[in-house]
Amino acid sequence: MPATPLTALRPGARAPWTAPDLDAVPREPTQADAERFARIVSVDLSPEQVLRATTPGQTYPKQRRVLALHWHPEFVPMELIGQRLDALFPNAEERLIIPTQHNELTTFGDYAGVEVDCYSSGFNQKIQLLLHLRKERLENAHTLRHMLRHTHKYRSSQLFEFMAAILEPRQETIARAAALTGADETTVEYVRRNVARIDALLTAQWDAVPRDSVKNKLLAHWFDTLRAEHSDPFIDRVQTYLRAVKAIVKAEFSLDYFYRASEVIEEARALGAGIVIPHPEQFWPVLLAEYDVDGWEVWNPQSSRYTAFLVSVLHEKNRCRPRSGRPLMVFMGDDTHLGEKVKDPAFQSPEKAAREVGVQPWDDMLVRKQLIMAGMDRARVMAEYRARLDG
């Protein structure tokens, strides 16, 4: 099939590029594909990646307190993350830093944490919860570990659903994604052939593939490495089409296999864990559920529009709570993904790469105004939450 010119942005304008000739796109994995796949799934860091992991682009010598309760180590070793944090906050006097890997308990210092996918039956939607606890309590976390392994395995299966939608193909899903993004037949077929080769490589090397690499972003990483062979505008179009397919697949993904939020909360409380609701703008209905949690994340790089409003609502809820009850606390999550830091800068998401563990707008004048009214600040939250976790 010959290359098909793609539609220009303006009516009547000339398209500045064309899609690849499909006759030149292989159907079976090549040696170059095998090398590309090995690089994408590898979790071993090169000297250059170690340098990126440990050397932040900016430091915060004036920040004396570091609170970080929502961040993802991914495959970056904690030792390197510790070096980065030392460089970020050279004059820090107090720290409460707990990692929250997706559905996997990890430890940093005296504490362990996790971000759990679960199901809110009252609102019929997937939500997430942040759990934090002292690391010695992991000795009794047998049930929680089993729940997390089940959830991690189920979440990983989204990749195979994603790939199946492209490969089978599921005509309705493909048609919807193409219509939403303007992808033409050549783009759709180009994606299908590449995903077929990824599937073949994943199947052949399954036993050797690190489980941290079995994620939806595997496909996005693959196509990013093809920018040297094709124009950036074409790969951008491919990525836009892929995101549309992924969004449709995720929307249709069954929630029945997730544990209920109430079940996760019950198990976490049995271990003396603290619980925080993250991403308030994504999960706002759950704030009405009166779950047994320690507080809300009122700011996140993906959820920052209603920060002042959420602080005021949380303050009002605390005013109405019985004096004997523990108040809800304000939290902020930088949602840093350390894996983004070690990527080649050409392939980094600028928005994600800009995030740093422990960097949140506690001292922003508008936010601080609301925090003062609510009787909250970073120092008070650190002291109170540490007391709850240690109690």
Rank of each mutant, 00 (worst) to 15 (best):
D224M: 15
D224Q: 15
T225E: 10
L226P: 04
R227E: 10
E229W: 06
E229Y: 05
H230D: 13
S231I: 01
S231F: 03
D232Y: 11
D232E: 14
P233Y: 06
I235N: 07
I235V: 08
I235Y: 02
D236P: 08
D236N: 13
T240I: 10
L242V: 04
L242Y: 02
R243G: 11
A244Y: 01
V245D: 01
V245H: 00
A247R: 04
K250E: 13
A251P: 02
A251L: 02
E252R: 12
E252L: 10
E252H: 09
Y257K: 13
Y257E: 10
Y257Q: 12
R260H: 12
V264G: 00
I265H: 02
I265T: 01
I265P: 03
E266I: 09
E267G: 03
E267T: 10
A268E: 07
A270M: 10
A270L: 12
G272N: 04
I275A: 08
V276I: 14
P278V: 09
H279C: 05
H279I: 12
P280W: 05
W284L: 12
W284I: 08
E290D: 11
E290F: 14
D294E: 12
D294M: 04
D294N: 11
G295N: 05
W296P: 01
E297Q: 04
W299A: 05
N300I: 00
P301H: 01
Q302I: 09
Q302V: 09
T307C: 14
A308R: 14
A308D: 13
F309L: 15
L310C: 06
L310I: 01
V311N: 04
V313T: 12
E316S: 14
P322L: 11
P322G: 06
P327S: 05
P327Y: 09
M329G: 14
M329H: 15
V330D: 12
V330Y: 13
F331C: 07
F331G: 07
G333T: 04
G333C: 06
D335I: 00
G339P: 07
E340Y: 05
K343L: 11
K343D: 05
P345K: 03
A346Y: 02
A346R: 12
Q348P: 00
Q348C: 06
S349P: 14
S349K: 10
P350C: 02
E351Y: 11
K352W: 08
K352A: 10
A354H: 08
V357S: 02
G358P: 00
